[in-house]
Amino acid sequence: MNAHTLFGKNAVVTALAISAISVALPAYALDKVRFGTDWLAEADHGGFYQALADGTYAKYGLDVEIQQGGPGAQNRALLLNGKLDFYLGTQQEQLVGIEEGIPLVDVAAFYQKNAQVILAHPDSDVQNFEDLAKLETIYMTHGGFGAYFEWMKATFGGFRDEQFKPYNFSPAPFLSDKQSAQQGLITAEPYEIERQTGTEPKIFLLADSGYKPYANMITTQQNLIDTNPDLVQRFVDASTEGWYNYLYGDNTAANALIKSTNPDMTDGQIEYAIEKIKSYGIVDSGDTLEKGIGCMTAERYKQLADELVKVKLLNPDTDYTKAFDTRFSCKGTGLKLKK
C-alpha cells in the first residue's frame, strides 16, 4: 500500500504545506549581524533601516540587529570589544585610530559628502564660506574645533581660535547672536532652526568648500575581514541596495521603523533630511553614479589623509592604507534599482 492510499488527501495537503514553507524560507540559516549606528535612528541611517524593513538583509542571508547610537552610547567601543560586528563611523576617526594602533577597517562609504555644515543668519552679510571668518563667533563642538576648524584655518585666511564657542546642540545661543554662525548637519539643524524661526538659515556645506572626507562609513574589525569576507561583502551589498530603495523606492516601512525606534523623530524631519540628502548629493554623487552607492576609493581616502597631515592632525609616517579596504565596494551593486 503506497503513502497516498494510506493517508489520502491529508497527505497531499501536508506535502503541499511543507513544500510552500520550504519555498518561503531561505535554504540556509541567517547569519546574525550586530550593527551599531552613530546616533539615534534618523533618515541619515535610512538605507540600513530600509534593508531591514523590506527584507533585503534577509535576502542576503543576514539577520541584522541595528543598535542605535545616541547620548552615552559607546558603539565604536562595542565594536572594538567584539560586541558589534559593524559600526557606522567616520573617515577621520578611523585614520586617527590607525595612528593609535586600533585594528578597525572601513569597507564602504555611504556618505560621499560629509553632511557637516556651518550655518549663518539669513539676513547676515555672509555670502560665501570665506565670509564666515568675519563673524565674531562660531558655535562648534570640541570635536569640530579640533578637526574641520583646523582645516578651515589652514585653507582660508581669517579664521581664528577666538571665534570658537562650545555648541551644546541647542540653536538658542546662535539665534540670539546675529554676529555668529553655528555648526550642524545639513539633515538636522537647518530644519530645527527653520521650524523655530520660520526661515531657513544660510547653509554652507564644508564638502562643497573643499573639505571632502567620507562619512557614514561601514567599519569593522580586521579579524572579521580575514575570517569571513563573504559576510562583510553581503552586508555591504545589502546595505547598498537598501540605500537605493530608500532614496528611489518606497521608503514607507523604513520610515515607520525609524520612528518606532526613535519616537522623537517626525515625518517633517525625515522628509527634510531626504530632500537635502538628494539635492546636495550626500549619498549618491561622484564615483557612485557609475560604481554604485557606498563606493570608496583609495584616491579619495588618501585626499583626507594628506589634508590631516598638512594641518598636523596626522603623523606623516602613519600608514593610512591600513584604515580601509576597497575590495567590498564600487562594484555597481544596486545601480539597476535607481529610478
Rank of each mutant, 00 (worst) to 15 (best):
A77Y: 08
T141V: 00
Q50W: 03
L52H: 12
V126D: 04
F48C: 06
K9H: 13
T288S: 15
Q94S: 13
A181P: 06
M265Y: 14
D325N: 15
V33R: 07
M140F: 09
D317S: 08
I193R: 03
L132M: 09
E42C: 05
A73G: 03
L304P: 01
T297N: 03
G242C: 09
E99D: 11
Q67V: 15
Q112E: 12
I282W: 00
N228Q: 11
V309H: 04
I18K: 10
G210N: 11
D177E: 13
Q116C: 05
D44W: 02
M296W: 07
G144R: 02
V64H: 08
Q303P: 00
G97P: 12
D306H: 05
D267M: 03
D230M: 09
L95H: 10
D125Y: 14
D54T: 09
K322A: 10
K310V: 02
A29M: 04
T137L: 03
L52Q: 15
T288C: 07
D317R: 05
T187K: 08
Y49D: 04
T197D: 05
L16D: 08
T288H: 07
D63R: 05
F174E: 13
Y111V: 03
Q67S: 11
Q91V: 00
A154F: 08
L304D: 01
N10H: 11
A11N: 05
L185D: 14
L104V: 15
Q182S: 14
F86N: 06
D237I: 02
F7W: 10
G101W: 02
G198K: 11
V126L: 03
M140R: 14
C330K: 11
K113R: 14
A43V: 09
S22T: 09
K339A: 11
T220H: 05
P173G: 09
E299M: 12
S170I: 06
N223F: 12
I270P: 06
H121C: 11
Y87F: 15
L314V: 04
E307L: 04
Y87V: 07
E150S: 12
E194H: 00
G281W: 06
S209T: 13
E93P: 05
V236A: 07
G47K: 08
L84W: 05
H142K: 14
G55P: 04
V33C: 00
L78I: 01
L205S: 04
F110N: 01
